[in-house]
Lab assay of single mutants.
Amino acid sequence: NKFNKELGWATWEIFNLPNLNGVQVKAFIDSLRDDPSQSANLLAEAKKLNDAQA
């Protein structure tokens, strides 16, 4: 379904953000699993944090 596809894509993108540490990645992935409907918002937050830590 739509959420599974978005969840998978967001998970892959978060895993590939180079400036996040393992704890941050795990926290974002756990949040995605808790509420897949928020995948776009969580991915945006992860990208912002990644950019801030560059």
Results as ranks from 00 to 15, higher is better:
Asn1Arg: 06
Asn1Val: 06
Asn1Glu: 12
Asn1Gln: 09
Asn1Ile: 10
Asn1Pro: 14
Asn1Thr: 06
Asn1Gly: 14
Lys2Met: 11
Lys2Asp: 15
Lys2Arg: 12
Lys2Gln: 13
Lys2Leu: 08
Phe3Arg: 11
Phe3Thr: 13
Phe3Lys: 12
Phe3Asn: 13
Phe3Ile: 14
Asn4Leu: 12
Asn4Trp: 15
Asn4Asp: 15
Asn4Met: 12
Asn4Val: 10
Asn4Arg: 05
Asn4Glu: 15
Asn4Tyr: 11
Lys5Glu: 15
Lys5Met: 09
Lys5Gln: 15
Lys5Pro: 13
Lys5His: 11
Lys5Leu: 05
Lys5Asn: 12
Lys5Ile: 06
Lys5Thr: 14
Lys5Cys: 15
Lys5Trp: 12
Lys5Gly: 13
Glu6Asn: 09
Glu6His: 06
Glu6Leu: 12
Leu7Gly: 03
Leu7Ser: 05
Leu7Tyr: 11
Leu7Asp: 07
Leu7Ala: 07
Leu7Cys: 12
Leu7Arg: 02
Leu7Lys: 02
Gly8Trp: 15
Gly8Lys: 14
Gly8Ile: 15
Gly8His: 13
Trp9Ser: 10
Trp9His: 10
Trp9Cys: 15
Trp9Ala: 12
Trp9Tyr: 11
Trp9Asn: 11
Trp9Val: 09
Ala10Leu: 07
Ala10His: 06
Ala10Gly: 05
Ala10Phe: 15
Thr11Ala: 15
Thr11Asp: 10
Thr11Gln: 12
Thr11Ile: 15
Thr11Leu: 15
Trp12Cys: 15
Trp12Ala: 14
Trp12Pro: 03
Trp12Gln: 14
Trp12Ser: 13
Trp12Leu: 14
Trp12Ile: 11
Trp12Arg: 10
Trp12His: 15
Glu13Ser: 04
Glu13Asp: 04
Glu13Lys: 09
Glu13Cys: 14
Glu13Met: 09
Glu13Leu: 12
Ile14Glu: 06
Ile14Asn: 02
Ile14Pro: 02
Ile14Asp: 08
Ile14Ala: 02
Ile14Arg: 00
Phe15Asp: 05
Phe15Gly: 07
Phe15Met: 15
Phe15Thr: 14
Phe15Leu: 15
Phe15Asn: 10
Phe15Glu: 15
Phe15Trp: 08
Phe15Lys: 11
Phe15Arg: 07
Asn16Val: 04
Asn16Ala: 06
Asn16His: 12
Asn16Gln: 10
Asn16Trp: 07
Asn16Tyr: 06
Leu17Ala: 01
Leu17Lys: 00
Leu17Tyr: 04
Leu17Thr: 01
Leu17Gly: 00
Leu17Ile: 01
Leu17Gln: 02
Leu17Arg: 00
Pro18Glu: 06
Pro18Ile: 06
Pro18Val: 08
Pro18Thr: 13
Pro18Phe: 08
Asn19Ser: 04
Asn19Arg: 01
Asn19Val: 01
Leu20Ser: 00
Leu20Met: 01
Leu20Asp: 00
Leu20Arg: 00
Leu20Ala: 00
Leu20Thr: 00
Leu20Val: 01
Asn21Phe: 07
Asn21Arg: 05
Asn21His: 07
Asn21Lys: 07
Asn21Asp: 12
Asn21Ala: 05
Asn21Pro: 01
Gly22Ala: 13
Gly22Lys: 11
Gly22Ser: 13
Gly22His: 12
Gly22Glu: 14
Gly22Gln: 11
Gly22Met: 13
Val23Gly: 09
Val23Arg: 10
Val23Pro: 09
Val23Thr: 11
Val23Cys: 15
Val23Ile: 11
Val23Asn: 12
Gln24Thr: 03
Gln24His: 03
Gln24Ser: 01
Gln24Lys: 00
Val25Lys: 15
Val25Thr: 05
Val25Trp: 02
Val25Cys: 10
Val25Asp: 00
Val25His: 03
Lys26Trp: 08
Lys26Gly: 04
Lys26Gln: 10
Lys26Leu: 11
Lys26Met: 12
Lys26Cys: 15
Ala27Val: 07
Ala27Asn: 10
Ala27Pro: 00
Ala27Ile: 09
Ala27Cys: 14
Ala27Met: 13
Ala27Gln: 10
Ala27Tyr: 14
Ala27Trp: 13
Ala27Glu: 08
Ala27Arg: 09
Ala27His: 13
Phe28Asn: 00
Phe28Trp: 02
Phe28Gly: 00
Phe28Gln: 00
Phe28Arg: 00
Phe28Leu: 04
Ile29Glu: 02
Ile29Trp: 04
Ile29Cys: 10
Ile29His: 02
Ile29Val: 06
Ile29Ala: 03
Ile29Phe: 06
Asp30Met: 06
Asp30Tyr: 03
Asp30Val: 06
Asp30His: 06
Asp30Leu: 05
Asp30Ala: 09
Asp30Gln: 12
Asp30Pro: 01
Asp30Arg: 10
Asp30Thr: 10
Ser31Tyr: 09
Ser31Gln: 14
Ser31His: 07
Ser31Thr: 06
Ser31Cys: 15
Ser31Trp: 10
Ser31Phe: 09
Leu32Ala: 03
Leu32Pro: 00
Leu32Gln: 01
Leu32Glu: 00
Leu32Lys: 00
Arg33Asp: 03
Arg33Pro: 01
Arg33Thr: 09
Arg33Asn: 12
Arg33Ala: 08
Arg33Trp: 15
Arg33Phe: 13
Asp34Ile: 10
Asp34Arg: 11
Asp34Lys: 14
Asp34Thr: 09
Asp34Gln: 12
Asp34Phe: 10
Asp35Leu: 06
Asp35Glu: 05
Asp35Trp: 07
Asp35Arg: 05
Pro36Cys: 08
Pro36His: 02
Pro36Asp: 02
Pro36Leu: 04
Pro36Met: 05
Pro36Phe: 04
Pro36Glu: 02
Ser37Tyr: 06
Ser37Asp: 06
Ser37Ala: 10
Ser37Pro: 02
Ser37Glu: 07
Ser37Gly: 08
Gln38Asp: 07
Gln38Leu: 08
Gln38Pro: 01
Ser39Asn: 05
Ser39Met: 13
Ser39Leu: 10
Ser39Tyr: 10
Ser39Phe: 10
Ser39Ile: 14
Ala40Cys: 15
Ala40Gly: 07
Ala40Val: 11
Asn41Lys: 13
Asn41Gln: 12
Asn41Ser: 11
Asn41Asp: 10
Asn41Glu: 12
Asn41His: 10
Asn41Tyr: 11
Asn41Ile: 11
Leu42Gly: 01
Leu42Asn: 01
Leu42Trp: 03
Leu42Met: 04
Leu43Asn: 02
Leu43Tyr: 05
Leu43Cys: 03
Leu43Ala: 03
Leu43Glu: 01
Leu43Pro: 00
Leu43Ser: 01
Leu43Gly: 01
Leu43Ile: 09
Leu43Phe: 04
Ala44Glu: 14
Ala44Met: 09
Ala44Arg: 07
Ala44Cys: 13
Ala44Thr: 07
Glu45Asp: 12
Glu45Ser: 06
Glu45Thr: 07
Glu45His: 07
Glu45Pro: 00
Glu45Met: 11
Glu45Phe: 06
Glu45Asn: 04
Glu45Arg: 07
Ala46Leu: 03
Ala46Thr: 01
Ala46Lys: 00
Ala46Cys: 03
Ala46Gly: 01
Ala46Phe: 03
Lys47Cys: 07
Lys47Glu: 03
Lys47Ser: 03
Lys47Asp: 01
Lys47Phe: 04
Lys48Asp: 04
Lys48Thr: 05
Lys48Val: 05
Lys48Cys: 13
Leu49Gln: 04
Leu49Asp: 01
Leu49Glu: 01
Leu49Val: 08
Leu49His: 02
Leu49Gly: 01
Leu49Ile: 08
Asn50Val: 01
Asn50Thr: 01
Asn50Asp: 03
Asn50Trp: 03
Asn50Cys: 05
Asn50Gln: 02
Asp51Val: 05
Asp51Asn: 07
Asp51Ser: 08
Asp51Ala: 11
Asp51Lys: 10
Ala52Pro: 01
Ala52Gly: 06
Ala52Asp: 06
Ala52Tyr: 08
Ala52Thr: 08
Ala52Lys: 09
Ala52Asn: 07
Ala52Leu: 12
Gln53Glu: 04
Gln53Trp: 03
Gln53Phe: 04
Gln53Ile: 08
Gln53Thr: 04
Ala54Met: 08
Ala54Ser: 09
Ala54Lys: 09
Ala54Thr: 08
